[in-house]
Every structure is written in C-alpha cells, then in structure tokens.
C-alpha cells in the first residue's frame, strides 16, 4: 500500500507540473494573426522600451495585426465617393506605462498632405464616431483624435464633441512618426497609457475602449488636394484593449484545485484499499 501511495504522490506531482506547464504555455501564446474583418486591436505587453520612434523596428515583426476595412466618408457633407485607402492593418504594444499603435496602409504615392488619424471615445458616455456629433435620443460624450500629417511630421492631440467643434488641445500628449516606402505608409502613434488630461482617452489595462480610423490621400489632382477635411477614408467604432498583466493568482487557484483533487483521490483509494467502501 505504501508503494501504491508513493507512486500516486509521484504521479500527482507529475500531474501538477503537467497542468502548470500546459496552462502557462497557453497563457503566453499569442493568438494567430487575425484575418481582415477584425473587431478589436490588442495592445500586446512588452518588457522595456517600445518601438515608438521607428515604424520599421523589428520589434513590430512579432506583433500580430488586426485589419479593418475603410469606407469613403459618406455620412455627412462634404462627402467623397472613392478613396485611396481601402483597409488598414493595426498593431499595438504597451509596457504598462506607454503604448504605441502602428497603422499600416497602402497609398501609391507619398504626398505632403497625406494624413492619418486615430479617434477614441473619452469617458463613459458613447460618442458618435463622426467627431462625437450630437445624437437625438442619447446623450453622447466627446472624442479624442490623434492626427498626424506628413508635411508637419508630427501628431496633434485634438478633441471634438460635435461637428465644427474640433480643436487642438491645450495640452499635447502624443507623438507620431510616419515612414512611406514602396507604396506603404507606416505611422506609429505613441502616448502614455494614462494622462492627467481629462480631454484624453485613458487606457486602463484589461479594459475595452472604442477606436476608429481615418486616412487622407493628399495627392494633388488638377491642382486640388484629392482628400482633405471631411473627404477621407473612415471606419466606424472598433474595440481596443491593453493586454492586462498576467494574473498569477490564477495559478494559485489552479494549484489549490490540483491539490484538492489529488487529496480526494488519495482518500478514496485508501478507503477502497481498506475495503471500507465496498
């Protein structure tokens, strides 16, 4: 009997390590890259510094991307029926302090007026994706817009709550860097996850926020910039979340479950061997 119990203990220990290895392997494995038609952007957690300054950094290579289709802006005038940017690939990372979001899209030529923007809902009230415009039956909230333009080489931190309310924030919190190469724009936006500015989206690890995208092809056609202002490629709202830090308390509960299950087995087998239960 001692031998039996001894081997049982050994097996239980093997089982314990087995489950721990299995569980942690699953916890750390990023899901396969999402197909076009994603519904969310995941900001993967990295250790140390982020590739905020370099859209071509090899650090981005291992980050899975989400992809979203874009539409010509036909929601309000001035409309546009045909736009250059048809879809965007988005990657995101954070390190618990800062976040960086990389947008990658096809645009056949580099132009001074090429531009890209991210839009976020701010606060608890849902904001309409079109600049937080007024809704008739629902009280909406404001939006935070991060706008990057090629000719300025930098990003502007903006706010809006309704049409014609778009304004540059008094406090600028974002950076951006764009690189055009072989018909592809890569623009990386970066900011602290949380700021002191209540006009900004505040990103809490593990909590969902809403994000939308807009892109302008600044090509000059017949002396006029092809896409500017409301004439742009847009998306409606999608979700974004900073991946939460691993919660190690889960493994404590798993170990407790394993120990209890093993103890239960030991008691049962022991009783059976003594012939009490049969």
């Amino acid at each position: 009997m001692l031998n039996g119990l001894g081997s049982l203990r050994t097996l239980s220990l093997i089982g314990l390590f087995g489950v721990l290895g299995f569980s942690s392997a699953f916890a750390n494995e990023p899901p396969a890259s999402e197909e076009p038609g994603s519904v969310s952007v995941r900001l993967y957690q990295l250790e140390g510094s982020l590739p905020s300054e370099d859209p071509n950094s090899s650090q981005w290579d291992s980050v899975p991307s989400s992809e979203f289709n874009l539409a010509p802006q036909v929601h309000w005038p001035p409309r546009i029926q045909e736009v250059t940017v048809k879809s965007v690939k988005v990657k995101g990372v954070h390190n618990g302090q800062e976040m960086a979001i990389l947008v990658e899209y096809a645009d056949p030529a580099e132009d001074a007026a090429d531009a890209a923007a991210l839009e976020f809902m701010v606060g608890d009230k849902p904001a309409h994706f079109a600049h937080g415009q007024k809704m008739l039956q629902v009280e909406g909230g404001p939006v935070n817009i991060w706008y990057w333009k090629n000719e300025s080489g930098k990003a502007v931190d903006m706010s809006a709550k309704g049409f014609k309310t778009l304004e540059t924030q008094p406090h600028q919190d974002i950076q951006a860097k764009g690189v055009w190469e072989n018909g592809i724009w890569k623009v990386v936006f970066s900011r602290l996850l949380k700021t002191e500015d209540d006009q900004d989206v505040q990103v809490e690890e593990g909590e969902w926020r809403s994000v939308a995208f807009a892109f302008w092809d600044g090509a000059v056609v017949d002396g006029l910039v092809k896409e500017k202002g409301g004439q742009k490629a847009v998306s409606t709202w999608w979700y974004i979340r900073a991946e939460p830090s691993a919660d190690n308390s889960i493994f404590g509960w798993v170990i407790l479950g394993l120990v209890l299950a093993t103890a239960f087995e030991l008691v049962i087998v022991r009783k059976l061997r003594k012939g009490q239960a049969v």
């Binding site: 489950v19 299995f22 699953f26 394993l258 299950a261």
Partner: peptide
C-alpha cells in the same frame, strides 16, 4: 492522473 489535471484545467 487525469482527474486532478481536469480539475486544474477547469479552474484555469
């Protein structure tokens, strides 16, 4: 062996 593993996996 499988029983504790299942309990652990369910918990996780």
């Amino acid at each position: 062996v499988m029983f504790p593993l299942l309990v652990g996996w369910q918990t996780y």
